[in-house]
Design a protein around this nucleic acid. Sequence first.
RNA 1: GGAGAAAUGGCGGAGUGGUCGAUCGCGGCGGUCUUGAAAACCGUUGUACGGGUAACCGUACCGGGGGUUCGAAUCCCUCUUUCUCCGCCA
Length: 424
Amino acid sequence: MLTINLIRERKEFIIERLKVKNFKAEEIIEKILALDSARREIQLKTDSMQAEMNLISKEIGNLMKSGKKEEAEAGKVKTYTLKEDIKSLSDKLIPIETDLKNEIVRLPNLPHESVVPGYGADDNVKVKEGGVLPQLPETALPHWDLIKKYDIIDFDLGIKLTGAGFPVYLGKGAKLQRALINFFLEEGGKAGYREVMPPIMVNEDSGFGTGQLPDKEGQMYHATNDNFYLVPTAEVPVTNIYRDVILSAEVLPVKNVAYTPCFRREAGSWGAHVRGLNRLHQFDKVEIVQIAHPDHSYQSLEEMVSHVEGLVSKLELPYRILRLCGGDMSFTSAVTYDFEVWSAAQKRWLEVSSVSNFESFQANRLKCRFKEKGDKQTRLVHTLNGSALALPRIVAAILENNQTGGGIKIPKVLIPYTGFELIN
RNA sequence: GGAGAAAUGGCGGAGUGGUCGAUCGCGGCGGUCUUGAAAACCGUUGUACGGGUAACCGUACCGGGGGUUCGAAUCCCUCUUUCUCCGCCA
């Protein structure tokens, strides 16, 4: 959520910037500014009426004390109409404030000045490519055939237990999941992230804080009896730790890493290119989250990108890093880097990580602020997060890229975690 | 799930209708003293919105929401959370 001050002061700038995200902001901004000035006008009136009211009440108190009952009664009479006026004015204020918030929430985050305009994946900018593309024989199998061959993931069983998109990991398949989770958490710890194990259901306030609610309501599983949402990513509970919190500047950046299963309804668009592990309703992910000083958040972003790069290269997966164009970025992001790994049998790049700086956009919703030592004013922090990493497509790439006649080779760094070198 | 008690500033803890944004203690910050530190002493100490170039001023906030009253931290209703006891339970 953009701050009202920014909208007031830099209207034209916002409109220009949002064009990069192909978002037409003029109309909403005009509406916001009109509501905002209406709000201030009413508040000014109610505040001064309230001040008068407080004054009269004090006088009545004093008169009562000194026994001047009649004068006190006269004072009371004065308040009756004043009280009614205040009530009717503040009743007007409520819908204005609601409308104002509803409108502000519709504005996406401003893309950073370095973000290029564009409409989709084709306009993204390749920043870097690493690793070696494996040469597989013509007989190489896609991962959905490999998992059947070695009996390590069962989709049909998942359909029986729950539904499509809820795979059951078996034997070495399950151990591989656990190994990857542990590997990612350990690497996060080495990079200075505190490990967090959060709840995987969150309340409405948390959903709002990170921007899933109200817009993306349909993308989350909703436990309606208790009004809880299954988390679509650990970003939600972990970032919300800092909702309504004022940090002191010395503790920044705050770095947390968390593993959670992730639940996404992802209505529509199921077909050939989302076969196997390419898209699931439930999957595992390790997420890194930073709360940063606004002056240093881009340093944090670069650090996170190189952390993720370290992970994919340690797993010996060919990868490329993209900077998303305006049109392909999320609503809340200011800058996003996507990581893709090469899936050799599908002959496709698969997105395995998205690392973003949200600047103060989430912080403003979260009311997460910090204070400089000796400073009276609070300022909004910057929040950042990134997958480090999401498991299913990493598994798909490992399975496909490392297949041999004798089985699937486990990347060296993972062997201490899996306890085996080969899936056969 | 049932019965009872409670929720106050960073923390502890007063305050049961009027000058209370809130006594006091601890902590934090600034200072005096000291070669330095500690101790002692003095001062200071929340957030948001609005007005003002600023100094500053106004308003709101005592778990959340609503009500009674000229006036609510204090009374009433409701929700949430915590604690104690009982029940159930991995």
